[in-house]
Design a binder for these strands. Structure first.
Length: 357
DNA sequence: CATACGTGGGA
DNA sequence: TTCCCAAGTAT
C-alpha cells in the first residue's frame, strides 16, 4: 500500500504553497492553520502570515494583538497563541532551531500527534504517521473497520498501525498522499472509488460498505446563550473591550454584552443594565438582533445603541473610530454588528430571522 | 474520555 | 433549515 500511495501522490497532488518548501517553520505554520480548517481557507492566511512573521524569532517577539489580527477569521484562536508560546520555547530551549525529535516536537504547545508526525515527515523525512480526519476515514474504509473514528482510541490504533507499516522511503509523500486521497477521492459522501488507487485492496469496496463507513458519533447540540449587547457611541467612535476571561474568543475584542435568561424583558430592564454598567441615564435604542453560531455555542445578541460622549468609566477598553478599529482583532460575532453600525453591511432586525423566539 | 474551542460552505 | 464537515489539541 505504501508504494501505491506515494506514487499516486507524486502524480496527482494539488499545487499548494506549503508543498514548495521543506522549511520546518513554514510546514509548522501550515499544519497549525490546517487544523480543523479547510485548505481553501488557509492559503491566503498562510502567505500573509509568513510575509508578516517570516522567522521563528519574529513570531516569538511579535505583539500578541498583531498575531491575533493575522489570525482573525480563521477561528480557534488559541492556535496562534500556542504557536507564539512554542516559538518562544524554541528560541530559548532550542537556540532558535526547530527541534527534530518526536519527543521535543510534541512537547511544544499546540502540537499533538498529528502535527508532530506531519512536521517530522514533511520537514525531516522521518517515518512518523500523520493521522487526521481524512486518514481515519480512508483507513476505516480500507479495512472495513467499524470503530467510532471520533474516539481517541481509534486514532491511536491507526497511528500504531501506520507507524509499523511506514518505511523511510518517502514519509512525506505517504502521509500527504493518504490525506490527499481522503480529501479528493475517499470523500465523506459520494467517494470516487473508481478513481482510487487503493480500490483493489479496499475492504469497503469489496463489501460495498462505502456509504456505511466511517462510523462517527454525532456531535452534541450547541448551547444557546442570550445577550444584551451594546454599541456605546458618540456618533464617531464605539466602545470595545478585550475578552480577558477564559473561554471563547480569549484576547479578542468585543462589544460589551451581558448574558440574560432570554429576550422577553421590557425596555426598563435594558435601562437598568445601562445604568448599572455604564452609569448612564441615556435611553437605549433598539438596533437589531443577531445570531452567531459557533461549533458548540449559539449566541442571540439583542443590540442596543447608547449615546455617550466619552468612554464610561466602568468600561476598561478602547473608544475607537472606524479607522483605528481595523487594528483590533475581533471575532466575526461582533465584527458583523460593528460593520452594520458603520453602514458597511445591512443591519439585521428580529423579523429577518424566522426562527427567532 | 468528553468537552471546549471558530468559521463558512455544502447537501 | 439543519446538520455535517475541514490537514486537531488541551484539559
Amino acid at each position: 500500500m505504501e508504494k501505491i500511495v506515494i506514487s499516486w501522490f507524486q502524480e496527482h497532488q494539488r499545487d499548494l504553497p506549503w508543498r514548495k518548501t521543506q522549511d520546518p517553520y513554514c510546514i509548522w505554520v501550515s499544519e497549525i492553520m490546517l487544523q480543523q480548517t479547510q485548505v481553501i481557507r488557509v492559503i491566503d492566511y498562510y502567505e500573509r502570515f509568513l510575509q508578516q512573521f517570516p522567522t521563528i524569532q519574529l513570531l516569538a517577539t511579535a505583539p500578541q494583538s498583531q498575531l491575533l489580527k493575522a489570525w482573525e477569521g480563521l477561528g480557534y484562536y488559541s492556535r496562534v497563541r500556542n504557536m507564539q508560546q512554542a516559538a518562544q520555547i524554541i528560541m530559548i530551549e532550542h537556540h532558535g532551531v526547530f527541534p527534530q525529535t518526536y519527543s521535543e516536537i510534541i512537547a511544544l504547545p499546540g502540537i499533538g500527534t498529528y502535527t508532530a508526525g506531519a512536521i517530522l515527515a514533511c520537514a525531516f523525512q522521518q517515518a512518523y504517521p500523520a493521522v487526521d480526519g481524512n486518514v481515519l476515514r480512508v483507513m476505516s474504509r480500507m479495512q472495513a473497520d467499524f470503530s467510532d473514528i471520533s474516539k481517541p482510541a481509534t486514532k491511536k490504533m491507526w497511528e500504531q498501525y501506520l507507524a509499523e507499516l511506514m518505511t523511510t522511503e518517502n514519509p512525506s509523500a505517504f502521509n500527504q498522499g493518504l490525506i490527499e486521497i481522503g480529501a479528493l477521492i475517499c470523500t465523506p459522501t459520494n467517494p470516487r472509488c473508481d478513481q482510487c488507487p487503493l480500490h483493489s485492496q479496499c475492504q469497503a469496496v469489496i463489501h460495498d460498505y462505502q456509504d456505511e463507513l466511517p462510523i462517527k458519533a454525532s456531535k452534541k447540540p450547541a448551547k444557546i446563550y442570550y445577550y444584551e449587547t451594546f454599541l456605546l457611541t458618540d456618533g464617531d467612535r464605539i466602545a470595545i473591550i478585550e475578552n480577558r476571561q477564559k473561554g471563547v474568543l480569549q484576547h479578542l475584542w468585543s462589544l460589551p454584552q451581558y448574558q440574560v435568561e432570554n429576550h422577553d424583558e421590557n425596555q426598563a430592564d435594558i435601562t437598568k443594565i445601562v445604568k448599572k454598567n455604564f452609569h448612564s441615564t441615556q435611553e437605549a435604542t433598539y438596533f437589531g438582533i443577531y445570531r452567531h453560531v459557533f461549533s458548540h455555542q449559539i449566541w442571540w445578541m439583542r443590540v442596543w445603541l447608547v449615546h455617550v460622549n466619552v468612554l464610561p468609566t466602568p468600561i476598561t477598553g478602547a473608544f475607537i473610530n472606524q479607522v483605528d478599529f481595523l487594528d483590533y482583532p475581533m471575532a466575526n460575532s461582533h465584527r458583523k454588528i460593528v460593520k452594520a453600525f458603520w453602514g458597511e453591511i445591512p443591519l439585521q432586525v428580529a423579523e429577518d430571522i424566522k426562527k427567532y423566539k
